[in-house]
Simulated scan of single mutants.
Amino acid sequence: MNEKNNITMHLPKKTVTRSPAISFILPVYNVADYIPRCVESITGQITLDYEILLVDDGSTDDSGTICDELANSNEHIHAIHKPNGGLASARNYGLDHASGKYIFFVDSDDYLASDITQSLERLLSGPSYDIIKFDYLQNISSKQHRITSSVPSGVISDEAGKRKLICEALNNEHTFVLSAWSYIYRRKFIENEQLRFVSEREIGSEDFPFTLEAFLVARSILVIHEPLYVYDLRDGSLTSTYRTNIPEKYAKLYQLLKRYYHQHVGDEYDQSLREFYIWSTYGLCSTLEYRLHNKWGRTMKQASQAMKHLFNLPDFRQAILEHDCHGDSIKRKILITIMRHRWEWLLSSFYACKQQLGRLLHQ
């Protein structure tokens, strides 16, 4: 079945005929309790010409109905209904129908920070930038924390500055945010470079290649230290289901990034890409298997087998054997040694002891 033939669109007649300054693309899937809050964070404060594209990705709850109601109530809001295809698919359909000068991806269970109107007006009415990177606020257990980028504020438009930014992103994979919602993109830049999201069902993360490819081909990147977005880390919003085949999916991600970077700049970033692949894959897999295996009803034995599988995967094995440990922390050097020698029993024993100690301390 052709997915495009099953799309329905609710596009009210607009009184504003020129292209809006910004398009907000909101993928929607079974988040009926959160969509109104997200949309209100935009309509309640943005004074620029704008449009909101609500891309209902085959929701099975009331999300689709809510999208239509919101579209009926505001000429700036459009509802698009499509068969379920995942987050990447929903964002791509939003891009296909967006008409704004800039694109702002907003996850529909998050929302914009308050009092950002002046910041957006200043950013979007000034010089044009391919990418605008900003800070954000993180909600955890009703407490809000500001997350500031490690990259200095200012304009990056030369190759040396861009190389520093890309290496920062690749070498600090746990602290450098690559999520699409933490950037504003110039739409013509996305179109000219033919940037699109690759399905997270294939490569594990739709954000990583989109952002890292955009960095490489951007001519101008503005970094600001202003929080424009609220990331709502609610219970169940992450790691709510066990993710299968992560080693294989991240190997595909690694090969995709290598091909793209080789096509544009050769092997200049090979070491950084390899480091990104090793630590992003190990970090996610170790979290799922060692720390959260009980959440899925899995035993430590099953977790151990999954990690052994990772250490034996050809792409991962080649990466850790080729990795240059110079400059690594002691912790990372130890982990690389363990993975090279396939001493998974050391890791599983460590985490088992750590969990047992935690239980004893909380008795």
Rank of each mutant, 00 (worst) to 15 (best):
M1E: 12
N2R: 13
E3N: 12
N5D: 14
M9N: 04
H10Q: 14
K13A: 13
R18Q: 12
N30D: 15
V31C: 12
V31Y: 09
V31I: 13
T47A: 10
T47I: 07
D49V: 03
Y50R: 01
G58S: 05
T60W: 00
T60G: 13
S63P: 14
C67G: 12
D68G: 05
I77W: 02
A79H: 10
I80E: 06
A90F: 04
N92V: 11
D96Y: 08
G100E: 06
S108C: 15
D110N: 15
D110H: 08
Q118E: 15
R122G: 03
S125Q: 09
S125T: 13
S125V: 00
G126M: 01
D135E: 11
L137S: 13
Q138E: 15
I140K: 12
T148Y: 02
V151Y: 00
E159L: 14
E159V: 12
R163T: 15
N171W: 09
N171P: 09
H174A: 14
F176G: 06
L178V: 06
S179V: 02
Y183D: 00
R187H: 09
N192E: 13
V198I: 15
S199A: 12
E200C: 05
G204A: 06
E206P: 01
F208V: 14
L212C: 03
E213L: 03
R219F: 00
L222E: 06
E226G: 00
P227R: 03
Y229I: 03
Y231C: 11
L233D: 11
L238A: 11
T239V: 10
T241P: 01
Y242S: 12
K249I: 04
Y254N: 14
Q255T: 14
L256V: 06
L256Q: 14
R259P: 00
Y260A: 04
Y260I: 01
Y260W: 02
Y261M: 05
H262K: 11
Y269I: 06
S272K: 00
Y282D: 02
C285G: 02
S286H: 02
L292C: 02
W296Y: 15
T299G: 06
T299V: 07
K301T: 11
Q302I: 03
Q305I: 10
H309N: 13
F311V: 08
F316H: 08
R317T: 05
E322M: 10
G327L: 09
S329C: 09
H341W: 10
E344A: 09
L347T: 08
S348H: 07
R359C: 00
Q363F: 08
